[in-house]
């Protein structure tokens, strides 16, 4: 028997153990925490660009969660694929960078050294480049500045 509880004031978490119906193909959730996601964000953006854009265009058509399940699965599989590849090829640099982010309030500018190592490895092994869309043309991107104003206390 269930009764209505206001989710805002409920003392119990909003849990629903009912599994997804069988007619929807299963996809393993990414299960990556925020720091590794932030570390991999630009590579996910570069590697899964088509799937991501497809999904967002689909969401633009209709906000119903049911409408874009297929595109969503593709997005998740692509991200899964990228994270696996990253772990296979650049595990050491990846771990170093996201651990640094974890310790530094998840600020990119505090972790430029490990980031450069990761970017280099990702370019060499997987051919992925970090680019910030909309950055001013003809200037060094902020993640490649040699002598930035904003740095950690210890460089």
């Amino acid at each position: 028997m269930s009764s209505y509880h206001d989710p805002q004031t409920s003392d119990r978490p909003y849990k629903d153990p009912t599994p997804l119906s069988g007619d929807v193909p299963h996809v393993k959730e990414l299960g990556v925490t925020s720091a590794p996601l932030k570390s991999a964000a630009f590579f996910i953006g570069a590697y899964c660009k088509d799937y991501n854009e497809d999904f967002m265009l689909c969401k633009n058509e209709n906000r119903d969660p049911e409408h874009c399940l297929k595109e969503g699965r593709r997005v998740t599989r692509c991200a899964q694929d990228l994270i696996t590849k990253m772990r296979e090829n650049c595990l050491k640099d990846f771990d170093k960078h996201w651990n640094c982010l974890e310790l530094n309030n998840q600020e990119y500018y505090m972790c430029r050294k490990p980031e450069r190592a990761l970017n280099k490895c990702m370019f060499e092994k997987l051919g992925l480049v970090k680019t910030i869309p909309g950055a001013p043309e003809g200037q060094t991107p902020v993640h490649e500045l040699k002598n930035p104003v904003y740095t950690g206390v210890q460089k």
């Binding site: 959730e29 990414l30 996601l37 932030k38 964000a41 630009f42 996910i44 953006g45 899964c48 799937y51 991501n52 999904f55 967002m56 969401k59 969660p65 874009c68 595109e71 969503g72 699965r73 997005v75 998740t76 991200a79 990119y108 910030i132 869309p133 909309g134």
Partner: peptide
């Protein structure tokens, strides 16, 4: 942009 790149992923999961 790091957040924008993660939006589809998190939205799909949600």
């Amino acid at each position: 942009w790091s957040r924008i790149h993660l939006v589809p992923l998190l939205l799909a999961e949600g």
